[in-house]
Design a protein around this nucleic acid. Structure first.
Lengths: 357, 357
DNA sequence: TGTTAGCACTCTCGCGTTGAGAGTGCTAGT
DNA sequence: ACTAGCACTCTCAACGCGAGAGTGCTAACA
């Protein structure tokens, strides 16, 4: 294993050749030979010279060959170098920007739909798998709550978060609660607890139930009971995956065994969340390649992801997953743009009232 | 092509042999030879005799061989005969019944969740792909409707159907409507329109808007405006698919091309609905094999499906899809049982009040 | 006449071989 | 320092071959 300070060893020519190898490999999916670099490369060198350089690059850990006398393939190290200091981002084309913005504007739909379309857009525009990690409901900020009687002692509880997430839940009360009282309870809870996260609210409720147990009147007792059930929503974040079938077209998945492992990997939502959330640090787009996780290393997959959220609070992560050989130059800007657009859409969903300054 | 009256030609022995071929093929996924039938078959016949019979069965369209000098494989005709008059249903084992009932009991969750678990149960217990077609929201019967102010002119509209389906929708009003008025509107609509399907309601609303245009007061105008937006929900049924990755383990999908086609087939939701709804007639479980549709014939897949619903009204379809070679003897009872259980769960979801006798 | 044993025939599948092609590493020459 | 040339290695597709499995047919048998 060669460490990063070796980067300094690369001459401008070395870098040029490495870049060329990476670009052609991304395009062709086949090991690239010295000959092809010599031919189509800008610098007029012969194949033999290129060979020497490529041998060096292999020694330093940037390239590898599947077997002797095959062309060379970039390693994760090479991709990282490429992304870090060699490639030039290609801005998202205007028509795609418009397409995204049209499909992903806040206010017209609730957050769950937004998650779905975001995931689909990611997949469609990158030809990879699109993934969106949705926030755990418990971490979202309460906007409104409402109880709707549906029959007998059954009540439908609707929890609306300030970022547009909606949770429906049927709860059963001890005794039938009249409609008017449900309205009063809804109003009371919305006014008194709006602006806090569901987790905070749950804790506060517990404290109230202990402290004020004695002097609670009938109304408050019922309110707390309903609130306790209604606010006990999911602790775990959800995952929306779209476009897995896209990958079947890629040449690296011509083997059924790999296809199976891939689907197993995508089925394990918990692990997906863990991997995607590795990208939550730093704010911008992050790229995981190969060794960084078991999913990616086993299948030679990469993850390009970025956090999204409203204001300072991160809500979740979004990104794409696919073979390491992917078009980073346009995929990274795409993920970045989608992260921004989704964040804005979520902020706009229930705009009109500041978030709780 | 041989038609059905040939059934009469089959002697008891022929049927016995055909049945044996089908059963072993279902188990082994490989063309079954005369030898294997002779060996393990009850009737003590030699392989040569079996061969004669099998040649007849092939001529009559019940068997076919992938190539000369391979064993024989049942045709769709054979499966139909098998299902119609040869197999003996295996009742769903008690532990599975319990498992299903525990996971699929109404009242504890809303209908969308039920659809999800039903689909998952189908897939898990049959090792095939589970599919549930959910009713178009417009065909469901209104139980309650509620408007929740979320910010400025934005209002969240919650439509609850009597079978437990819930639809959330953010709508934008012309001017801000005070909270109390929204409550009044919710009550008014719930009381006056509960018990009708959304489609009926939409039509009645249109009539009202035309007829009473003149003498409408401010309240009614607002109400109708909100109702019009809120009730304009999906015309198209949804589809929940689960367990596609199960099929990757099956030997018939060892080829990547087939895997691709399969995923494309499952991605086309509209076509799935159409195929599943072929089974809606007749009430009980129906089986489509091979030629019956392009999806099934192209991939040698079968569909086992049954309608579900509350009372006399069918709501949707549910079933499983997989290679024609499937264990019909237990899969059919399973689908049947799940259809009944889901129907009951939906009926129970908001029990306590009769449906509108 | 129905059943069985035997045998030749056909087809698939796995395996080793072979030759072409692609690509490399090395060395000698510029 | 670069390049041309050449021998070497490895893959891949094609081919042939033999084993194995299964059939169809025919002749013998009850």
């Amino acid at each position: 294993m060669v460490d990063a300070k070796d980067h300094g060893r690369l001459t401008a020519r070395d870098r040029e050749i490495l870049k060329d190898v990476i670009l052609t490999y991304i395009l062709s999916a086949e090991p690239v030979s010295s000959r092809s670099v010599a031919k189509h490369g800008k610098l007029g060198l012969s194949a033999a010279t290129i060979r020497n350089v490529m041998a060096d690059l292999e020694e330093w850990g940037y390239l590898m060959q599947p077997h002797t006398s095959a062309g060379r393939v970039p390693t994760a190290l090479a991709y990282h170098l490429f992304i870090g200091s060699m490639m030039e981002m290609r801005a998202v084309p205007a028509r795609e920007r418009r397409y995204i913005q049209e499909n992903l504007k806040g206010g017209s739909s609730d957050a769950d739909q937004l998650m779905g379309t975001a995931s689909h857009l990611l997949s469609e525009l990158s030809s990879q798998v699109g993934i969106v990690v949705t926030p755990a409901m418990g971490e979202t900020v309460l906007k409104a709550v409402d109880f709707i009687p549906v029959s007998g002692r059954k009540v439908l509880c609707v929890v609306v978060s300030s970022t547009g997430f909606i949770d429906n839940k049927v709860i059963e009360t001890d005794e039938e609660v009249p409609r008017e009282e449900l309205v009063r309870i809804s109003n009371y809870l919305t006014e008194n607890f709006g602006g806090q996260t569901l987790r905070q609210i749950r804790e506060r409720l517990l404290r109230m139930m202990v402290e004020e147990k004695a002097q609670m009147d009938r109304f408050l007792a019922r309110t707390l009971e309903l609130a306790k059930s209604g606010f006990s929503v999911g602790e775990t974040p959800g995952v929306v995956v779209d476009g897995t079938s896209m990958l079947l077209a890629k040449p690296e998945l011509s083997d059924v065994q790999r296809v199976r492992r891939m689907f197993e990997a995508f089925a394990d939502k918990a692990r997906l969340v863990k991997i995607l959330n590795l990208c939550i640090q730093g704010g911008g787009v992050r790229v995981l390649i190969g060794e960084d996780s078991d999913l990616t290393s086993e299948l030679d997959f990469s993850v390009v992801a970025t956090p999204y959220g409203v204001g300072d609070q991160p809500l979740g992560t979004l990104g794409i997953v696919g073979p390491s050989r992917m078009d980073y130059e346009s995929v990274i800007p795409l993920v970045n743009f989608l992260g921004e657009t989704l964040s804005r859409a979520l902020a706009d969903t229930f705009s009109g009232e500041p978030e709780r300054k």
